[in-house]
Design a protein around this nucleic acid. Structure first.
Lengths: 240, 240
DNA sequence: CCTGTTTTCGCCTCAGAGTCGATAACCTGC
DNA sequence: GCAGGTTATCGACTCTGAGGCGAAAACAGG
C-alpha cells in the first residue's frame, strides 16, 4: 500500500449466501436460526464479515464452510449489494449477496441451528434477508431459461423424469418431460450416459440416464432480436 | 442504532458509474482524467466515496451530479461489487459499479477533465475500472435483447432508421431496420407518434416518428424453455 | 412524370411447444 | 417362460411466433 490514505468513508461489510437446492421436490433455501440479538430467534442467511485479506467470495466460502461442505457448491454468483442505512440495528452494514446452488443428490450434514426451507414457505427472516432471497430466486429462474445453469441444480446423473422434477421445482410450475428432453437435447445441454436407471419398484421400462454436457455456464442465445450479420464470413467484426 | 457494536470489519467503499450513451453512432462511456496520484493522468470512471447517511445509489447520484445533469440519466442499475485487495494502491477499497444510460439527444455540459470515449477504443483506465466497463457493456447488450431497455438509449422520438443506428451502436454490429421495426412493434415496445420526420436533405418519403411506449423496464419473456401450463383457464397453478 | 429514398407488406423458413400414438423395456403373476 | 400391466422413449404431425429477404407502395423534389 502507498500513495497516501484512502479518502473514502469505511463501513462494516458482510457477505451473505442464498444457498438454493431442490430438497424433496421443492426449491429450498438454507437458513440458520439466530441465537443472539439482534433478531434472536429469527432465521437468517449464512454469511458474515469479511476478513482483511480476503475477497468477498473467499470470505463467503469460509463462512459457508461452517454450514455445508463447500465442495458441494456447484455454482456461486454475486447478485447484489444492499446498502440501506438501517438494515442492521447495530449500525450501518453493507451486505453483498451471492447465489449458491447445490445439487439434490448431496446431503450436507447440517448443524443443529441450520435447515432447509421451501422458498414458498419462508419464515420471517432477520434483517433484510428476504430481499436477497427474492433476488436470488429470480436470478436463478431467469438463467434457467437461457443458460445451462441447471447443471448446478441437477444430480450428476439423472433420468428425464428426475430432471423434470428438479426443473419444475426450481421454476415453481410443471414442465412437460417430453419437451424438456427435446429442448435440452437440441441445445446440446445434456447427453445420455449409456447407463439406465435401476428399475425400482412397480416395474416398467428403466429410464435412460443423462448428464449435463458442460458443467460451466453457457449461454443459449436468448432469441437475439438482431444478431450479428451471419456468424462467419462477412467481415465487420471490429472490437475485441 | 442499538444492540451492541457491529461485529464486522469495515472497509472504505466507493461507488462508480459506467455512464453509457450513443455519441455519434458509437457507444461511448464517460470518463474523467485523474489529476492526482494514484494513477494521475489516467482516465477513470466517475464516482467516489459513500457519505454516512447515503445509500450507494444516492451517493452515486451526487457524484454524478458533478459530471452530468442527473435528470438526464434514464436508467441506473447496479452491476457488481469488486473486492480485490490490491485494487487501490492506497489501501483496500471495495467498489460497487453501476450502469447508467443517457439518451443521445441530450448534450451534457461536461467539465474540462471529462469526455466521452467509444467503448471500442478505451484508453488505459485507472485501477480496475476496465472490468466495470466490460461488465456494464455486457449487461446492457444482454438486456437489449430481452427488455425494452432501449428506451434509455434512444431519443424521446425517433425514426426507425435512427433507432437502428442507436441499437447498432449499442450492440456493436448492424441490425436490419425492417426486422427491428417488426420486432419492436410486435412486442409492443414502440408506438408511432403520428408525426413524421422532416424530409431533410435528399428527399424521399418522410419517416414516421416513434416513441417507446413504456419508459420503465419491462421484460420480454426470453423464449421460456417451458412456460407455465397455458396462462389462463387450465387449473394447476399450485404454489406461490 | 420520373427518380431516389424510406416504409410497409407478403412470403419463406425455422425453432419451440403441444399432442398423439407406436414401440421398447421392464415388472409381476400365473 | 409367457401374458399382461407399467413406464420410458421416440417419431410424426401440427400450430404458432420470429427472423430473413425482397418486392411493392408511399412520398418529396426536381
Amino acid at each position: 500500500m502507498s500513495a497516501g490514505p484512502v479518502p473514502f468513508p469505511a463501513y462494516p461489510h458482510e457477505v451473505l449466501a442464498v444457498v438454493l437446492s431442490v430438497r424433496g421436490d421443492t426449491l429450498s433455501v438454507l437458513l440458520w436460526r439466530r441465537s443472539q440479538a439482534p433478531h434472536a430467534g429469527r432465521w437468517a442467511l449464512p454469511g458474515g464479515g469479511v476478513e482483511p485479506r480476503l475477497r468477498l467470495r473467499e470470505a463467503l466460502s469460509r463462512h459457508l464452510a461452517t454450514k455445508v461442505d463447500v465442495r458441494e457448491i456447484a455454482w456461486l454468483e454475486q447478485v447484489a449489494t444492499h446498502s440501506r442505512v438501517d438494515r442492521d440495528p447495530r449500525g450501518r452494514v453493507l451486505a453483498t449477496g451471492y447465489l449458491a446452488l447445490i445439487p439434490p443428490d448431496t446431503e450436507p450434514a447440517l448443524p443443529n441451528d441450520t435447515s432447509w426451507f421451501p422458498v414458498t414457505q419462508l419464515p420471517r427472516l432477520a434483517f433484510d434477508h428476504h430481499y436477497f432471497v427474492e433476488a436470488a430466486v429470480e436470478r436463478l429462474r431467469a438463467k434457467l431459461s437461457y443458460t445451462n445453469i441447471g447443471f448446478a441444480l441437477a444430480p450428476s446423473e439423472f433420468t428425464i423424469q428426475r430432471l423434470r422434477e428438479v426443473v419444475s421445482a426450481a421454476l415453481g410450475y410443471d414442465v412437460a418431460p417430453t419437451n424438456l428432453h427435446r429442448v435440452m437435447t437440441r441445445r446440446g445441454m445434456i447427453e445420455p450416459t449409456g447407463a439406465r436407471s435401476v428399475p425400482g419398484q412397480g416395474g416398467g421400462r428403466p429410464a435412460a440416464l443423462y448428464r449435463f454436457r458442460e458443467r460451466t455456464l453457457e449461454i443459449t442465445d436468448p432469441f437475439a432480436v438482431l444478431r450479428p450479420p451471419k456468424a462467419d464470413s462477412s467481415a465487420r467484426a471490429g472490437t475485441s
